[in-house]
Amino acid sequence: MELLIQSIVTGILLGGLYAIVGLGLSLVFGIMGLTNIAHGNLMIMCSFIVMVFGTVFNGNIILMLVLAIACMVVFGFLFQNFLVNKVIDKGPNPALLVTFGVSIVIQNALQLIFGADARSIKSAFATVNVVSSDYVSISGAYLANFVVAVVVIVLLSLFIKRTRMGRAIRASANNVRAAELMGVNTKLMYSVTMCIAMATACIAGLLVGNTFVFYPYSGPQYLIIAFGVVVIGGMGSIPGTLLGGIILGLAQLLGSYFFGTGYQIFSGYIVMLILLTVCPAGLLSNAKRK
């Protein structure tokens, strides 16, 4: 019984981490209809960048994160401006394949630079137990994941809904021509979206590196998690990622509780497939509301 409660609590907290991993993917899909296959590898690249800054600045976590976000925003802008924006008008496949190619390049570059060893990002709060009672214990890293994820998701929703730039971004998503006639530079808005997605990927990269070990080839694994989160919650829905993350986290932890730890990831995949079949547009999809 204690173990079941522990599984549920850990599953929900893990869901927060998964939500922020999927957030960038969902945002990019929602705004420009692009499935960014490079998202997982970009996130792992963020983890490595944070790690590098961590060794340089000796673990000042805010400074690490700010510098990494600055780097990735520039990278995201270049990536969007010089690669994706050039092909995004030519139908869905070329843009998809560009991100696919970039994904392969990033993964192999990381492997070349950092080698195939397991890495992690150390922090003061990762190993501390925040709550430890008879029933349940919560580690600092997991709690931080969940809190940060919720804060980022709320802030991003407010930004997209309330600010002028957010409105311009939504306009570019709804109708490119109408937005351009109203004086919105839609390609620039796409670039801004990619920059925001990269910033969330940086935060996700930090949290993932702080919670688990990561390898240069961990990207596809997190890409699938991001996909799962996004398709369960609904492609393009920002609150949906939190719901999707929690469902996926619970599915994994409960799967490992009932069937054994080897089937943790497997049961996550099975739940993903079932939900995709039953509810192909996701639980909180934008498409349904349109």
Binding site: V87, P94, L97, V98, G101, V102, S103, I104, V105
Partner: peptide
């Protein structure tokens, strides 16, 4: 070793563009 997929990836991206 290690460069082969990197180079293939770059070639693929350039070709798509």
């Amino acid at each position: 070793a290690g460069y082969s997929n990197l180079i293939l990836g770059i070639i693929a991206v350039i070709l798509i563009m």
